[in-house]
Simulated assay, not measured.
Amino acid sequence: MKTYFRIIKILDFIVELGNSLIVLIRKNSKKTVGIVAGVSLALIVVLSLPPSLGKETLYITLDSATYDNEKRVIQISASTNFPEDTEIMFGLAGKIDEYSVSVPPEPALVKNGKLNVVLGPDSMVNGTFDIRASFSVNKDRDRNLHLFDEFGDYKEFKKNYYVNGELVDSIKGYYVERIMLGEITVEDE
């Protein structure tokens, strides 16, 4: 979704640039047109750069997600480069018919670059779900406080790190949600 809005911004900029160039061409100022065109090209290149450029990428990669029909649970295994003992939340989100359905998130701690978690069985229903992860760094909840030392506050994190999710500032820290890992289909036999 972020990429879509970024493309729209670039296209809007190009349209405005085109309109400005037409006005300058009509005034017949070739030197001004050249300067505006050069600056505009540089801005288009900068706006087109990926948001992760120059930042360390933090990742969570789905290794496996399996549905156990008898126990009615989903077992998830993932790999990550997050520091040891970081709590990562895993959950499911999807649509069944026209209703949004989610399975409550469950925590997993990073151990040797691995995460393992079991979701269900109480709220498990048939359907196809997005597997999502999130994490928070929060002083009030004593959650992942070691990440303040590792990554810094919100501004430092935003400046130096990239995670494929939505980074949100909060009063007592920050969190990243909607880290999309894959999808799974649940079908009881």
Rank of each mutant, 00 (worst) to 15 (best):
I76N: 05
G94D: 07
L24Y: 03
A42D: 06
L167Q: 08
P107C: 03
G152W: 00
D153R: 14
V137N: 05
P104V: 07
I76M: 06
L58A: 06
I179T: 09
E156G: 01
D63Q: 07
V117R: 02
Y174I: 06
S29K: 15
N144M: 03
I10Y: 10
E98N: 10
R72I: 09
N126M: 09
L62R: 02
N144T: 05
I10K: 08
E189L: 10
V163F: 00
I179R: 09
I22H: 01
E87R: 15
F157M: 04
G173S: 03
I8V: 15
N28K: 15
I96D: 00
V45W: 04
V137L: 05
S136I: 03
G152Y: 02
I8N: 03
E16N: 07
E183G: 06
Y175Q: 04
V118S: 11
S20N: 14
I74C: 10
Y161S: 06
P121H: 11
V73I: 15
L11C: 09
K30V: 15
V46S: 13
D169I: 00
P83S: 10
I171W: 04
I74E: 01
A78G: 11
L43P: 09
I10W: 11
L62H: 04
L92K: 02
T128G: 03
K114N: 12
G182W: 06
D188Y: 11
S123T: 12
G182H: 04
G120H: 05
I25T: 14
